[in-house]
Amino acid sequence: MFPHTVRLALLALSLAPSWALAEETPSIVAPEGDRFALQPAEGGFLRMNKDTGAVSFCSAKDGVATCRLGAEERVALEAEIERLRAENARLKAAAAPPRPSTLPSEQEFEKALSFTERFLRRIMRLFKEEAPSGGSL
């Protein structure tokens, strides 16, 4: 009786206008239209993606529909994942090496600080020497 219930549910969903479904369950967007073909099978149904040809076996349990990829699709999916991993590794290896820091080293910083300190001391000494000794301008 369970497959019969699934068939009835699928028939009701296929006959319901897409706007009615969208109003009742706003989280369901994306009108799939004729993207999938459904075929009853023992214990559930087969769902074929008409765009990609991928076939999944779907079943419903406790009100939750679950679809599993076929063996061929799983192999293709795993091959694509491995290809993407290899491409990711290649791109990481080909990435430009990190640029060297443009900040001065500690030694360069201390040298610049020493220069600045000597410069300021000399300027202060010149100001003291050139200051009027009488106090009036």
Rank of each mutant, 00 (worst) to 15 (best):
A20T: 12
T25S: 04
A95S: 15
G53M: 01
V55I: 14
H4D: 15
M48N: 01
R85N: 13
E130Y: 12
A37P: 05
R68F: 06
A20G: 07
M1T: 06
S133K: 10
G44N: 03
N49H: 03
L113A: 12
L21R: 03
E130W: 06
L10P: 01
L103S: 03
V64C: 03
L46Y: 09
P132Q: 07
R118M: 00
R35G: 00
S101Y: 03
A37D: 09
D34F: 13
A22V: 07
E73C: 01
I81M: 13
L46G: 04
P40Q: 02
E24G: 11
A93M: 02
L21H: 02
M48W: 01
R85K: 15
E82C: 02
F45C: 14
C67T: 12
E78M: 10
A54G: 02
L11W: 04
A22C: 09
F115C: 07
E80L: 11
P31D: 13
V75L: 08
E72D: 12
L84G: 05
L103F: 07
K111Q: 14
P17V: 02
D34Q: 12
R83I: 01
F127K: 14
G44C: 08
R83M: 05
F2I: 10
A65C: 06
V75W: 09
L38A: 11
N49T: 03
P40Y: 01
T52K: 00
D34G: 13
R74H: 10
W19V: 09
R7P: 00
S101T: 09
I28L: 13
P3E: 10
A20V: 12
L69Q: 10
K92W: 04
S133P: 09
V6A: 13
G33V: 05
L38V: 11
I123K: 11
L21E: 02
S105C: 04
E129M: 13
I28M: 06
P40D: 13
L15F: 06
L11E: 15
G43H: 00
E78N: 03
S56C: 07
M124A: 14
D34V: 06
E87G: 14
Q107P: 01
V29R: 12
R68T: 14
G134V: 02
A20N: 00
K61S: 08
A37Y: 03
F109W: 14
E87R: 13
A12K: 06
S59D: 14
H4G: 14
A60C: 15
R90V: 08
L137C: 11
T5A: 10
P31H: 09
A9L: 05
I28V: 15
A16D: 00
M48H: 01
A22G: 01
G53E: 02
A37M: 08
L103G: 03
A22E: 15
E106C: 10
A86K: 10
R74M: 09
K128W: 03
E117S: 13
A93L: 09
K111A: 08
F45R: 06
F115L: 15
R68I: 06
P97D: 08
G70N: 07
E129R: 12
C58F: 03
L46F: 02
V6H: 07
T102W: 04
K111V: 12
E73T: 03
S59E: 15
V6T: 14
H4F: 09
H4I: 02
R85G: 15
A131V: 00
L91C: 05
A89N: 08
S14G: 10
E130P: 00
E108K: 01
I123Y: 10
D34T: 15
C58R: 02
F57G: 01
L77G: 03
